[in-house]
Amino acid sequence: MSDALRPEDAPPSIYGPDGRPQFFADPAMDRFVPVVLNLASELWVQAETIANLRALLEEDGVASAERLDAIAEASASDPDREAALRAFIDRIFTPLREAPGVAA
């Protein structure tokens, strides 16, 4: 938020040096709360994806635990899976990063 466009009566202490709202005495906590929510979001997306897939597999009569295990094993050295993991980590843990231009 731009300094000039903050509410006139906003105490400066309610924002951190990066301009974001600061709620906890230890600013690190303000970074961890988003991580927890991000994790919950990712977990739900996966849960819903699995539920959709399971419904499809059951509907088509092709569900097979053995086949799924084999696919997982084959993915161990899959670069696409590695890239997906990196994107996953970025999506969740970006709030932990220092804002650009803010000294540690």
Partner: peptide, 9 residues
């Protein structure tokens, strides 16, 4: 604090 931090995110 909990309400606010969660709501912002």
């Amino acid at each position: 604090k909990v309400y606010s931090a969660c709501r912002v995110r």
